[in-house]
Design a protein around this nucleic acid. Sequence first.
DNA 1: GGTACTTTTTACATCGTTGGAACAACGTTG
DNA 2: CAACGTTGTTCCAACGATGTAAAAAGTACC
Lengths: 332, 332
Amino acid sequence: MTVTLKDVATLAGVSVKTVSNVVNGYAFVKPENRRRVEEALAATGYRPNVGARNLRRGRTGFLALMVPELSIPYFGELAGLVITAAQKRGWSVLIEQTQGTRSRERETLSSLGPHLVDGALVHPEALEAADFPSPGEIPLVMLGEHAVDVPIDHVAIDNVLAAQTAVSHLASLGRTRIAAIGRNPARGTSSQRLAGYRAGLVAAGLSYSDSLVAPAEKWHRSVGAAAMRSLLALPSPPDAVFCFNDLLAIGALRAVAELGLRVPEDVAIVGFDNNEESAFSLPSLTTIAPDKTALAEAAIDLVHRRITGDKGLPPQDIQTPFALEIRESTSG
Amino acid sequence: MTVTLKDVATLAGVSVKTVSNVVNGYAFVKPENRRRVEEALAATGYRPNVGARNLRRGRTGFLALMVPELSIPYFGELAGLVITAAQKRGWSVLIEQTQGTRSRERETLSSLGPHLVDGALVHPEALEAADFPSPGEIPLVMLGEHAVDVPIDHVAIDNVLAAQTAVSHLASLGRTRIAAIGRNPARGTSSQRLAGYRAGLVAAGLSYSDSLVAPAEKWHRSVGAAAMRSLLALPSPPDAVFCFNDLLAIGALRAVAELGLRVPEDVAIVGFDNNEESAFSLPSLTTIAPDKTALAEAAIDLVHRRITGDKGLPPQDIQTPFALEIRESTSG
DNA sequence: GGTACTTTTTACATCGTTGGAACAACGTTG
DNA sequence: CAACGTTGTTCCAACGATGTAAAAAGTACC
């Protein structure tokens, strides 16, 4: 049923290779033949068999993107941008979800054989250094989290500085009891944001207190609400909170409202990620806004360079920009 | 560098085909040989070349999922569920974004050759009947929208009934000036929800008024806010609004709040889609909750049946369940 | 030991494509 | 007109796997 080069060749009265040459834009084809081939191509509606082509070329035309869950707004948005950036360079993107578990992350990583995809962008959550595949396999670019001492390309914003910026902003409003929500020792991202939180406190001359740092296993809205409730139940509750992502912050907003308190008058809140919904919450959310487009472009660019040559390039560590987006949750 | 069947065969001292037989679980292999082959497989770390296997088998192992934009929560959530459901049956999912434009939708559809993917789930937004490929190509399953008289599998909830349910709920609260946001003649989904809206009005004995139906080109939050503002500026503004999706409703919530009015006391609001964020908005949003998991499973199941045999099956039209999720925006 | 049968293994062709070498046609040049 | 470089085309092998059919090895029975 499907049309192959051979069918086109028969119809055009030339050899298979000549048709192949036309399809691939080889220069030296007699105009007359080229015309005949092109007509035959059009007439038959020929489409190359990607599998066969890749078998021959040793390329697949696919990139994998590994994320915890697409239903999390940050990853949905990021995936969309990655797909767009990849498409510009002729790649299709295959998405794998890991639910943020180490076992699924390892499994996914090891299944990414060189025949399935040309390269992969991975956004690990629980992965450890030992889990990384021996180099020499397909090009890998890590997004978001910096796994310690693994010689792999890495693209992210400066999480520590960003977190510090958020906390400094809260301090600059005159808040003195600044809490944090999102501690999770198993996740590198959490450690970095926690470090930034502490740095922000120090810079503002405030002291750190463990009791003001709420843990959060999953960074979901409901967890943020629960954490906020427990913080507000403290003997001396916080007057500001830095949430390690926007979902936690959205949950926190709700918890504050349910207790009849006001944001930002009673509690100022800052999030992280700048999800689209955060511009529309009530009140809208001040947040760290990573340049997700830059992130996606940089990652695709890097994997592109790895795939097309540049073998010698040492592992890159690229930082993309971010900004503090000030909204109602910290500015009445 | 990569290990092929041949390498394994050499190491095990048997023929390539025997190794292939072991890999594929063929029954008649002498235990002794099977053991040797398995050892060689383990020793070399053999991984099948998917491309070559598919070339031979005529399958690719990929499904495509076409959606407007992953950054829209509904599609992010849906895509996540589709990927999960596909994975259970051994497929990887390739995502294509169309931005909801007809040209990109057509382009995408026509690029889905039989060699690239085994089947596709498409969620069109602007596509018309004429755009559909001749049958006999790869199996297609349409999600969400029912394009008229195209003999193609289709999975969705009953949009008309769902919309009617939403409006009936508002009417049951005693609201009499029920508006709608989201009219867009170019989109089938909009027409269906509009029809349901009218049916709901009729059922409640209310009259329809064009002035209470706000258009919305894109169903985004900002558009919902703008539409709400214009509805509230009417000489006799609505006391309830049915928004054609949750994003519009979230925008509407904000517009109401900015004017100092209360939800649901002054205006009750119902959305559609049950995005995760809608359970946490202030107030939380009453909405139509489609069973997205059922939708994803049904679609994957259908495409699975198409691919593995069942050629004769007439085009299916499957309806998946939905529920009205009542929250604060209609119940103080 | 021979026949008939079953189990196990192998050689070969094949999927659709492209790289390379060989070959043919052509116009230039000496 | 022979030798040559340039252009254009074809043939063949290969990418890595699997289906087919035939060969080889084993088993059972007379």
